[in-house]
């Protein structure tokens, strides 16, 4: 099979229902969706897939999201990959920590409308395409 023109979006989410909801949100778009349900799997898949964007939860089994973010951003092959956080953690410290770690945006699940998240991801990927 030849290489696809689609961009790869890696969704890291341990909640099965939410993961499927996010898949439904994006799978009809022009992106190829990959998913990981724990931190270790997320790191492994990010290194294998070289996704164009990572949507990352922070509370994850095995390796937490902050650590995943740190590993991704310290990997020369992945450090330019935009990471958007979608998490239940909503304190200013968590937001600050994630942004300091290299996340380009931070969405708190309880306050997030999925259409806003969808638009943000499209916007980031379109900028990435143009660049």
């Amino acid at each position: 099979m030849s290489a696809p023109s689609k961009m790869v979006l890696l969704i890291v989410e341990d909640d099965e229902v939410l993961l499927r909801a996010l898949y439904i949100l994006f799978h009809k778009s022009k992106y190829t969706i990959a998913s990981a349900t724990d931190g270790a799997m997320a790191v492994q898949m990010a290194q294998r897939l070289k996704p164009n964007l990572i949507l990352l939860d922070l509370l994850l089994p095995k390796i937490n999201g902050f650590e995943v973010l740190r590993i991704v951003k310290s990997d020369p092959a992945l450090k330019e990959t935009p990471v958007i956080i979608l998490s239940n953690l909503g304190s200013a410290e968590d937001v600050e920590r994630a942004k300091a770690g290299g996340a380009i945006d931070y969405f708190i699940k309880a306050n997030t409308d999925l259409s806003v998240l969808e638009n943000k991801i499209k916007q980031v990927l379109e900028i990435k395409t143009q660049s």
């Binding site: 689609k6 969706i33 998913s35 898949m45 294998r48 897939l49």
Partner: peptide, 28 residues
């Protein structure tokens, strides 16, 4: 969500393999 997506229906492109590969959801 469960009716609409079959397990292993999500595919991703693996550059090292040069093609698509099915990725299973971990069933919770």
């Amino acid at each position: 969500l469960y009716l609409g997506i079959k397990s292993a229906s999500v595919s991703a492109y693996f550059r090292e393999k040069g093609g698509y590969e099915k990725i299973n959801f971990d069933y919770n």
